[in-house]
Design a binder for these strands. Sequence first.
DNA 1: GGGGGAAGGACCA
DNA 2: TTCCTGGTCCTTCCCCC
Length: 726
Amino acid sequence: MGTTSEGGDRPWQSYHTVYTNAKAGMDGVDKEKVQRIVYEMSKGSKYFENEQRKEAFIQQKMENMRGQYAKLTLADISHFQTIADRRILELEATRVLSKIWLHVDMDAFYAAVETLECPSLKGKPLAVGNMSMLCTANYEARRFGVRAAMPGFIACKLCPDLTFVPPNFKKYTYYSELTRKVFHKYDPCFITTSLDEGYLDITEACREKGMSGGEIAEELRGAVYTDTGLTCSAGVAPNRLLAKVCSDINKPNGQFVLPNDRMAVMTFISSLPIRKIGGIGKVTEHVLRDVLGINTCEEMLQKSAFLCALFSHSSAEFFLSVGLGLGRTDNPQSKLRKSMSTERTFPSTEDEALLFQRLADIAETLSNDMQKEGLCGRTLTLKLKTASFEVRTRAVSLQKYIYSSKDILSHASKLLKAELPLSVRLIGLRMSQFNDDKFGQADPMQRTLTNFVISGDMSLKVTNGSFQDSEINDNQLMHVNESSLSNDGQDIYLLGAVGPSDTDHLSDIEDKCHTFGNDASETQKSCGPVEVEYPAKEMNDLQTMKAEDLSSCRQFEANNLGEMYDKANPSDNNVAVSSSREENSFWIDDYRCSLCGFELPPDFVEERQDHSDYHFAEVLQKEESTHNSRVLMQKQRFDQKAQHAKESARKKRKPSPKDSKHLTIDLFFNKDQKSFCYKALIATSELLFPSPLVNLYGSHYFPPMRMGRWKIHRRERDQDDGGSKG
DNA sequence: GGGGGAAGGACCA
DNA sequence: TTCCTGGTCCTTCCCCC
């Protein structure tokens, strides 16, 4: 086809799509045939045209590089050789050979899981994915040149008998968890980069068990097979980079051990193709090969002067370390999320209404995802892929941190509007510069309560007794600054607000807030938010308490907030969650439950109370589990941030404490002298909504969830209250 | 000239 | 007829101080 039409030329040979590159299990594939079919199937498509454009761009880049290369004088080369030699010596000095790293990679994971669950698929060429895109292919399919990241329709052409299975990530996650349980036995701090692979530092395991790295790998693979029925491959090496390369050597169901010996490493590296290294992809391989004639890792060292002359410092350093067979050997404590994004591909359209609808859906998804992790960001990036596969990104950095779908959509719409009219096939939104990114760049202590509360999603704003779907900003949210904490007699205000997107919880919390009484003006100042005031005297008392002392917290709540609570509800000391308002609105026609349709006559007072309590318990249970996971994630993120801050402390300037007027979260929770604040927060949050902060500190102040919980809580408080007062 | 933001690209699973 | 998604890191360009 191509041969005749191109007059004997073989144009497919220069068509380097990512899936024409060999992958494990593709030995013996007729590469030329695969390339030709892929080329023929792609030729003329918009995707293909875009690939051609990209290829031309890379060619241009290489041309420029060749020009620079040609201009290098002998003196230049000598100069860069000196630099390169010095860098090589410095890198060599960092070599660590005392660690044993194991990289485990599941064999054709998704396809293997599908086969395990449906044995009739065994032995047949199988692909997980659809006509548009494949997630993976089993080894039978790979023999035809079918592989992950290949469009299904091309795979069909390569292998007409190919069976397609739609991906089911729930299943893969389940099996992934099983493998991780095994990994955990050998290294509790193992690192995962995806569902199907993991890096384990088995140095300790080898020492404890008196086994070699190879023996541990053998044992672990056996354990994975026993527990999951799935096979995996492993690589053992002195660092992660090499371990990853090694795990690919005897795939599937095999392993390769590279001894912790410098000579062994250098010999291994000497003939290793650069493309085998993680971080060197299609383009880099192309550039290094065609401009500098580098094909193997060893040649990186031979051409070190040119690498230093033509590439940036960080790129050159990476290439040299590859040439030396160096890789990471440390155990990173955490990996912080830098951004979060969502994107959707759809049939190309110019219909603006449709595009804005898509944008709204994506903004909603992103907002939900951010809230699940308690994130607020201030840089929003819109990504567009045009009908011709051109990718455009447009970003805006905002003055304030946002997370609500409303805010995201509002800013994203402006970005999109500026690009229209345009035929678009993909829209994506990315949020970055998270609220606590400052944490990594400045003083690690600069965690404000505001961030904490926003991300915990537990704040609350009440105006005139009802919640407002308010814009969140630093001033409206929990605001505890240095001056309000000083013992100068000033009052302290603990304010909260429910995130605008928390509308599901609004009515629920609104009802809880009604426990303050329908006339909320008792507890709030005119039309301002609910304010809990702590006079200087109580503040001083509280400062003498220890933050861990939760009984003191209860006492505090009983003495202070309980009293306030009572003030707000002068008519009902046994106020329950089902406030009069709820009672009125809960029963349609005063007969039928508005939530489930269950019918109860008005005179079944107790039954109706139990019924509404039941619904409330359901909602709270849901809320509690959401809050718990959010708060836990938030706490983990704090811990990670602290670690991250330590790591980056050397690089980054530490601002003066004067730089921030906000009290740091650490100060807030750790310093005894500020511990009253912690208690006040706990007490306030418990009063308004019981779960988040209390659970963060592992206390079960409230009894386990059950019907009538608020009544029970109230009675407990009454007892405490009575005790303390009596 | 350096810092920071924006845009875009490479790479990975 | 059909060529993904979500994330990170790096480079380049440009503006501003």
